[in-house]
Simulated scan of single mutants.
Amino acid sequence: MNHGSDPDNSSFDHKSKKESLSIDLLSDLPTELLSQLKKTGLLSLKDIVIEGPFELSAKSGISMDDCNFIYNQAIAYLEDVGIMEKRFTPATTIYDKRKKIGRISTGSKNFDKLLGGGLETGAITEVYGEFGSGKTQLCHTASVIVQLNRNQGGLDGGALYIDTENTFRPERIETISRARRQNPSQTLDNIIVARAYSSSHQELILSESRRIIEAQNIKLLILDSAISLYRSEYLGLSALSLRQQRMNKLVHSIMRIAQTHQIAVLLANQVQSSPETGFGNTSFKAAGGNIFAHSSTYRIFLRKSNRNRIARMVDSPNHPESEIVFSIDESGITDPQKI
Protein backbone atom coordinates (compact mmCIF):
# COMPACT_ATOMS: atom_id res chain seq x y z
CA MET A 1 0.00 0.00 0.00
CA ASN A 2 1.56 3.31 -1.05
CA HIS A 3 0.95 6.01 1.54
CA GLY A 4 2.82 8.81 -0.16
CA SER A 5 4.69 11.59 1.60
CA ASP A 6 3.51 13.48 4.67
CA PRO A 7 2.57 17.08 3.73
CA ASP A 8 4.14 19.99 5.54
CA ASN A 9 2.26 20.82 8.74
CA SER A 10 1.91 24.50 7.81
CA SER A 11 -0.25 23.65 4.81
CA PHE A 12 -1.80 20.51 6.26
CA ASP A 13 -5.13 21.69 7.63
CA HIS A 14 -7.36 19.60 9.91
CA LYS A 15 -9.81 18.66 7.16
CA SER A 16 -7.18 17.22 4.85
CA LYS A 17 -5.46 15.49 7.75
CA LYS A 18 -8.71 13.80 8.71
CA GLU A 19 -9.40 12.77 5.12
CA SER A 20 -5.87 11.36 4.74
CA LEU A 21 -6.56 8.95 7.60
CA SER A 22 -9.90 7.68 6.27
CA ILE A 23 -10.74 4.01 6.76
CA ASP A 24 -10.92 3.82 2.94
CA LEU A 25 -7.13 3.38 3.18
CA LEU A 26 -7.81 -0.16 4.42
CA SER A 27 -7.86 -1.33 0.83
CA ASP A 28 -7.28 -4.97 1.77
CA LEU A 29 -10.73 -5.19 3.35
CA PRO A 30 -13.63 -6.71 1.41
CA THR A 31 -16.17 -4.09 0.27
CA GLU A 32 -18.97 -5.48 2.45
CA LEU A 33 -16.74 -5.42 5.55
CA LEU A 34 -15.70 -1.82 4.87
CA SER A 35 -19.35 -0.85 4.40
CA GLN A 36 -20.28 -2.51 7.69
CA LEU A 37 -17.44 -0.67 9.41
CA LYS A 38 -18.60 2.72 8.10
CA LYS A 39 -22.06 2.18 9.60
CA THR A 40 -20.53 2.44 13.08
CA GLY A 41 -19.58 6.07 12.43
CA LEU A 42 -15.89 5.30 12.88
CA LEU A 43 -14.53 6.93 9.74
CA SER A 44 -10.91 7.50 10.75
CA LEU A 45 -8.04 5.11 11.40
CA LYS A 46 -7.46 7.01 14.64
CA ASP A 47 -11.04 6.20 15.70
CA ILE A 48 -10.40 2.50 15.17
CA VAL A 49 -7.20 2.55 17.22
CA ILE A 50 -8.86 4.49 20.05
CA GLU A 51 -11.85 2.12 20.20
CA GLY A 52 -9.80 -1.09 20.21
CA PRO A 53 -10.82 -4.41 18.60
CA PHE A 54 -13.28 -5.48 21.32
CA GLU A 55 -15.35 -2.29 21.21
CA LEU A 56 -15.08 -2.28 17.43
CA SER A 57 -16.61 -5.75 17.29
CA ALA A 58 -19.37 -4.82 19.75
CA LYS A 59 -20.37 -1.72 17.77
CA SER A 60 -20.10 -3.15 14.27
CA GLY A 61 -21.10 -6.78 14.69
CA ILE A 62 -17.91 -7.76 12.86
CA SER A 63 -16.18 -10.89 14.20
CA MET A 64 -13.30 -10.49 16.65
CA ASP A 65 -10.86 -12.09 14.21
CA ASP A 66 -11.76 -9.54 11.53
CA CYS A 67 -11.67 -6.68 14.05
CA ASN A 68 -8.21 -7.73 15.22
CA PHE A 69 -7.07 -7.70 11.59
CA ILE A 70 -8.65 -4.25 11.00
CA TYR A 71 -7.09 -2.89 14.19
CA ASN A 72 -3.62 -4.15 13.32
CA GLN A 73 -3.93 -2.70 9.81
CA ALA A 74 -4.90 0.69 11.26
CA ILE A 75 -1.96 0.57 13.68
CA ALA A 76 0.40 -0.30 10.82
CA TYR A 77 -0.74 2.69 8.78
CA LEU A 78 -0.41 5.11 11.71
CA GLU A 79 3.08 3.71 12.29
CA ASP A 80 3.89 4.21 8.62
CA VAL A 81 2.95 7.91 8.63
CA GLY A 82 4.75 8.57 11.93
CA ILE A 83 1.75 9.14 14.18
CA MET A 84 2.56 6.10 16.30
CA GLU A 85 5.89 4.46 17.11
CA LYS A 86 6.91 1.60 14.86
CA ARG A 87 6.82 -1.86 16.39
CA PHE A 88 10.60 -2.17 16.56
CA THR A 89 12.29 1.19 17.02
CA PRO A 90 15.87 1.97 18.08
CA ALA A 91 15.98 3.72 21.45
CA THR A 92 17.98 6.57 19.88
CA THR A 93 15.06 7.30 17.52
CA ILE A 94 12.64 7.48 20.45
CA TYR A 95 15.09 9.68 22.37
CA ASP A 96 15.46 12.12 19.47
CA LYS A 97 11.69 12.24 19.05
CA ARG A 98 11.14 12.97 22.74
CA LYS A 99 13.46 15.97 22.50
CA LYS A 100 10.86 17.58 20.23
CA ILE A 101 7.82 16.63 22.32
CA GLY A 102 5.22 19.32 23.00
CA ARG A 103 4.83 20.71 26.51
CA ILE A 104 2.38 23.15 28.10
CA SER A 105 3.53 25.40 30.92
CA THR A 106 1.60 25.24 34.18
CA GLY A 107 2.22 28.93 34.83
CA SER A 108 4.79 28.15 37.53
CA LYS A 109 8.49 27.69 36.76
CA ASN A 110 8.77 25.46 39.83
CA PHE A 111 5.89 23.27 38.68
CA ASP A 112 7.25 23.12 35.12
CA LYS A 113 10.62 21.99 36.47
CA LEU A 114 8.91 19.22 38.45
CA LEU A 115 7.32 18.00 35.18
CA GLY A 116 10.49 18.36 33.14
CA GLY A 117 9.17 21.36 31.21
CA GLY A 118 5.38 21.24 31.57
CA LEU A 119 2.39 19.07 30.73
CA GLU A 120 3.55 16.56 28.12
CA THR A 121 1.73 15.69 24.91
CA GLY A 122 0.96 12.02 24.35
CA ALA A 123 0.87 11.48 28.11
CA ILE A 124 -1.59 11.55 31.01
CA THR A 125 -0.73 13.82 33.93
CA GLU A 126 -2.84 13.09 36.99
CA VAL A 127 -3.05 15.53 39.90
CA TYR A 128 -4.84 14.59 43.10
CA GLY A 129 -5.38 16.19 46.47
CA GLU A 130 -7.97 17.52 48.88
CA PHE A 131 -10.38 20.32 47.97
CA GLY A 132 -8.61 23.66 47.73
CA SER A 133 -5.24 22.08 46.90
CA GLY A 134 -5.15 23.68 43.43
CA LYS A 135 -6.39 20.96 41.06
CA THR A 136 -9.12 23.01 39.37
CA GLN A 137 -6.94 26.13 39.38
CA LEU A 138 -4.29 24.18 37.47
CA CYS A 139 -6.93 23.03 34.97
CA HIS A 140 -8.12 26.60 34.39
CA THR A 141 -4.59 27.99 34.08
CA ALA A 142 -3.42 25.29 31.65
CA SER A 143 -6.50 25.81 29.43
CA VAL A 144 -5.42 29.46 29.04
CA ILE A 145 -1.69 28.91 28.58
CA VAL A 146 -2.08 26.14 25.96
CA GLN A 147 -3.31 28.83 23.55
CA LEU A 148 0.00 30.70 23.61
CA ASN A 149 2.77 29.95 21.13
CA ARG A 150 5.56 27.53 21.98
CA ASN A 151 8.00 30.28 22.97
CA GLN A 152 5.49 31.42 25.61
CA GLY A 153 4.80 27.96 26.99
CA GLY A 154 1.77 27.00 24.88
CA LEU A 155 1.06 24.90 21.82
CA ASP A 156 -1.01 27.32 19.71
CA GLY A 157 -4.09 25.19 20.36
CA GLY A 158 -7.34 24.97 22.23
CA ALA A 159 -8.53 23.07 25.28
CA LEU A 160 -11.37 20.58 25.71
CA TYR A 161 -12.60 20.80 29.30
CA ILE A 162 -14.80 17.90 30.48
CA ASP A 163 -16.45 19.11 33.69
CA THR A 164 -18.01 16.48 35.94
CA GLU A 165 -18.35 18.51 39.16
CA ASN A 166 -19.61 21.86 37.84
CA THR A 167 -16.31 23.53 38.72
CA PHE A 168 -15.51 25.25 35.42
CA ARG A 169 -15.87 29.03 35.73
CA PRO A 170 -15.57 31.29 32.66
CA GLU A 171 -15.10 34.23 35.03
CA ARG A 172 -11.89 32.63 36.30
CA ILE A 173 -10.69 32.17 32.73
CA GLU A 174 -11.34 35.85 32.11
CA THR A 175 -9.35 36.86 35.22
CA ILE A 176 -6.41 34.62 34.34
CA SER A 177 -6.42 35.86 30.72
CA ARG A 178 -6.36 39.51 31.74
CA ALA A 179 -3.61 38.90 34.29
CA ARG A 180 -1.56 37.17 31.59
CA ARG A 181 -2.35 39.88 29.01
CA GLN A 182 -4.41 37.65 26.76
CA ASN A 183 -7.69 38.52 25.08
CA PRO A 184 -10.41 37.06 27.38
CA SER A 185 -13.02 36.70 24.62
CA GLN A 186 -10.60 34.94 22.29
CA THR A 187 -9.36 32.74 25.13
CA LEU A 188 -12.89 31.67 26.04
CA ASP A 189 -13.66 30.92 22.38
CA ASN A 190 -10.78 28.45 22.29
CA ILE A 191 -11.98 26.44 25.29
CA ILE A 192 -14.67 23.86 24.53
CA VAL A 193 -16.56 22.85 27.68
CA ALA A 194 -18.54 19.61 28.00
CA ARG A 195 -20.59 19.16 31.18
CA ALA A 196 -21.00 15.47 32.08
CA TYR A 197 -24.00 14.47 34.20
CA SER A 198 -23.38 10.72 34.59
CA SER A 199 -20.57 8.25 34.02
CA SER A 200 -22.23 6.99 30.82
CA HIS A 201 -22.64 10.59 29.64
CA GLN A 202 -18.95 11.20 30.38
CA GLU A 203 -18.03 8.17 28.27
CA LEU A 204 -20.24 9.41 25.43
CA ILE A 205 -18.58 12.83 25.55
CA LEU A 206 -15.15 11.22 25.43
CA SER A 207 -16.20 9.07 22.47
CA GLU A 208 -17.42 12.16 20.60
CA SER A 209 -14.38 14.23 21.62
CA ARG A 210 -12.31 12.86 18.75
CA ARG A 211 -14.29 14.98 16.27
CA ILE A 212 -13.82 18.10 18.41
CA ILE A 213 -10.09 17.49 18.82
CA GLU A 214 -9.57 17.38 15.06
CA ALA A 215 -11.97 20.22 14.18
CA GLN A 216 -10.95 22.69 16.91
CA ASN A 217 -7.17 22.07 17.01
CA ILE A 218 -7.37 20.84 20.60
CA LYS A 219 -3.98 20.37 22.27
CA LEU A 220 -5.13 19.84 25.86
CA LEU A 221 -7.82 17.50 27.20
CA ILE A 222 -8.93 18.12 30.79
CA LEU A 223 -11.12 15.91 32.97
CA ASP A 224 -12.13 17.58 36.22
CA SER A 225 -12.69 15.21 37.86
CA ALA A 226 -12.16 11.91 36.08
CA ILE A 227 -13.63 9.64 38.75
CA SER A 228 -16.28 11.56 40.71
CA LEU A 229 -19.30 10.30 38.74
CA TYR A 230 -18.20 6.67 39.05
CA ARG A 231 -17.75 7.04 42.80
CA SER A 232 -21.22 8.54 43.21
CA GLU A 233 -23.00 5.93 41.05
CA TYR A 234 -21.26 2.65 41.92
CA LEU A 235 -21.66 2.37 45.67
CA GLY A 236 -20.74 -0.56 47.89
CA LEU A 237 -18.54 -3.62 47.43
CA SER A 238 -21.07 -5.32 45.14
CA ALA A 239 -20.61 -2.56 42.54
CA LEU A 240 -16.83 -2.24 42.93
CA SER A 241 -15.90 -4.75 40.22
CA LEU A 242 -18.14 -3.16 37.59
CA ARG A 243 -16.95 0.32 38.54
CA GLN A 244 -13.32 -0.70 38.12
CA GLN A 245 -14.06 -2.29 34.74
CA ARG A 246 -15.76 0.88 33.51
CA MET A 247 -12.94 3.09 34.76
CA ASN A 248 -10.33 0.80 33.23
CA LYS A 249 -12.03 1.13 29.85
CA LEU A 250 -12.26 4.91 30.32
CA VAL A 251 -8.63 5.51 31.19
CA HIS A 252 -7.32 3.29 28.38
CA SER A 253 -9.51 5.17 25.92
CA ILE A 254 -8.04 8.43 27.24
CA MET A 255 -4.54 7.00 26.85
CA ARG A 256 -5.15 6.07 23.22
CA ILE A 257 -6.63 9.52 22.51
CA ALA A 258 -3.52 11.18 23.97
CA GLN A 259 -1.19 9.03 21.88
CA THR A 260 -3.01 9.02 18.54
CA HIS A 261 -3.83 12.75 18.60
CA GLN A 262 -0.60 13.73 20.37
CA ILE A 263 -2.34 15.98 22.89
CA ALA A 264 -1.68 16.53 26.58
CA VAL A 265 -4.18 15.08 29.05
CA LEU A 266 -4.67 16.54 32.52
CA LEU A 267 -6.76 14.49 34.96
CA ALA A 268 -7.91 15.96 38.27
CA ASN A 269 -8.55 13.14 40.72
CA GLN A 270 -10.09 12.94 44.16
CA VAL A 271 -8.54 11.45 47.28
CA GLN A 272 -9.75 8.91 49.76
CA SER A 273 -8.77 8.18 53.35
CA SER A 274 -6.05 5.61 53.80
CA PRO A 275 -5.03 3.75 56.98
CA GLU A 276 -1.46 3.93 55.74
CA THR A 277 0.62 7.03 56.36
CA GLY A 278 1.83 8.72 53.21
CA PHE A 279 4.46 11.39 52.75
CA GLY A 280 4.18 14.45 54.96
CA ASN A 281 2.13 12.52 57.54
CA THR A 282 -0.93 12.67 55.33
CA SER A 283 -3.47 9.85 55.34
CA PHE A 284 -4.87 10.32 51.85
CA LYS A 285 -4.31 8.44 48.62
CA ALA A 286 -5.62 8.89 45.09
CA ALA A 287 -9.05 7.45 44.37
CA GLY A 288 -9.41 4.83 41.64
CA GLY A 289 -7.00 2.24 43.00
CA ASN A 290 -4.56 0.51 40.66
CA ILE A 291 -6.55 1.47 37.54
CA PHE A 292 -5.30 5.06 37.61
CA ALA A 293 -2.01 4.21 39.31
CA HIS A 294 -0.93 2.02 36.39
CA SER A 295 -2.41 4.15 33.60
CA SER A 296 -1.34 7.71 34.42
CA THR A 297 2.06 8.65 33.03
CA TYR A 298 2.72 11.15 35.81
CA ARG A 299 1.03 11.27 39.23
CA ILE A 300 1.32 14.40 41.35
CA PHE A 301 -0.03 14.93 44.84
CA LEU A 302 -1.10 18.46 45.77
CA ARG A 303 -1.55 19.78 49.28
CA LYS A 304 -1.92 23.08 51.09
CA SER A 305 0.96 24.67 52.95
CA ASN A 306 -0.24 27.84 54.65
CA ARG A 307 -0.84 30.35 51.80
CA ASN A 308 1.10 28.27 49.28
CA ARG A 309 0.67 24.80 47.81
CA ILE A 310 3.07 21.88 47.53
CA ALA A 311 3.23 19.55 44.54
CA ARG A 312 5.02 16.22 44.89
CA MET A 313 5.93 13.92 42.02
CA VAL A 314 4.67 10.55 43.30
CA ASP A 315 5.09 8.42 40.18
CA SER A 316 6.92 9.03 36.92
CA PRO A 317 8.84 6.89 34.41
CA ASN A 318 11.68 9.40 34.27
CA HIS A 319 11.44 11.85 37.21
CA PRO A 320 12.72 11.29 40.75
CA GLU A 321 10.36 11.73 43.69
CA SER A 322 10.60 15.39 44.58
CA GLU A 323 8.39 18.29 45.59
CA ILE A 324 8.10 21.98 44.85
CA VAL A 325 6.19 24.99 46.19
CA PHE A 326 3.75 26.97 44.04
CA SER A 327 1.10 29.62 44.59
CA ILE A 328 -2.28 30.68 43.24
CA ASP A 329 -3.16 34.28 42.44
CA GLU A 330 -5.13 36.25 39.82
CA SER A 331 -2.98 34.80 37.05
CA GLY A 332 -3.76 31.23 38.18
CA ILE A 333 -0.89 28.89 39.02
CA THR A 334 2.35 30.79 39.66
CA ASP A 335 5.49 30.81 41.80
CA PRO A 336 5.53 32.15 45.38
CA GLN A 337 6.60 35.74 45.74
CA LYS A 338 10.06 36.17 47.21
CA ILE A 339 10.00 38.19 50.41
Rank of each mutant, 00 (worst) to 15 (best):
P53G: 01
N151Y: 05
L242S: 12
E120Q: 12
G154W: 08
S283C: 15
D6W: 00
N281D: 09
L33S: 13
E130A: 06
F111G: 02
R307F: 12
S108F: 00
I101P: 03
M64P: 13
T93A: 10
L34I: 08
Y77E: 01
R180N: 02
R178G: 02
F111D: 05
R211H: 09
G236R: 01
R256P: 06
L220Q: 04
F168E: 04
L240E: 11
D163P: 10
N149Y: 05
G116E: 02
D8Q: 13
H201A: 14
S27P: 04
F111K: 00
R256E: 15
P275C: 07
T89Y: 01
D112S: 02
I83N: 02
S207M: 08
Q186K: 13
E233R: 12
P90H: 13
Q216I: 07
L33Y: 06
N72L: 11
P320G: 03
R103P: 07
G154D: 02
G116K: 01
N217C: 08
A287Y: 04
R243D: 07
E203I: 10
E85H: 06
G134Y: 05
Y128D: 03
I328L: 05
Q262M: 13
V271H: 12
P317H: 14
D156M: 12
A159C: 14
K219S: 09
A286W: 01
A215Q: 12
T136I: 07
F12D: 02
Y95S: 04
M313C: 13
N190Y: 06
L223I: 10
V193D: 03
E171V: 10
H252F: 09
K59R: 04
L237Y: 15
N281V: 02
R169D: 12
I222Q: 05
A264C: 06
L267F: 11
I70H: 03
G236D: 07
R299I: 08
L42Q: 07
L37Y: 04
G278S: 02
E321V: 15
I173C: 11
Y230G: 10
S105E: 01
R169S: 15
L160D: 04
R231S: 05
K285E: 10
T89F: 01
E214F: 01
M255N: 15
D156F: 11
L138S: 07
P275Q: 03
G116S: 01
S295Y: 03
R299Y: 03
S11I: 14
L56N: 02
P275D: 04
I192D: 09
L34T: 07
F131W: 06
R246D: 05
L78D: 00
E208M: 07
E174S: 13
S133N: 09
M255P: 06
I145E: 00
G236V: 05
R307P: 12
T282M: 12
S16Q: 14
Y234R: 03
S44I: 00
E51T: 08
L155K: 03
I101K: 03
A311L: 09
G116I: 00
L188W: 05
V251I: 14
M313S: 04
G288Q: 04
E171G: 15
S296N: 06
N151H: 12
R309P: 02
T282E: 09
Y71G: 09
K109M: 08
K86R: 09
I50D: 00
I254R: 09
E174K: 14
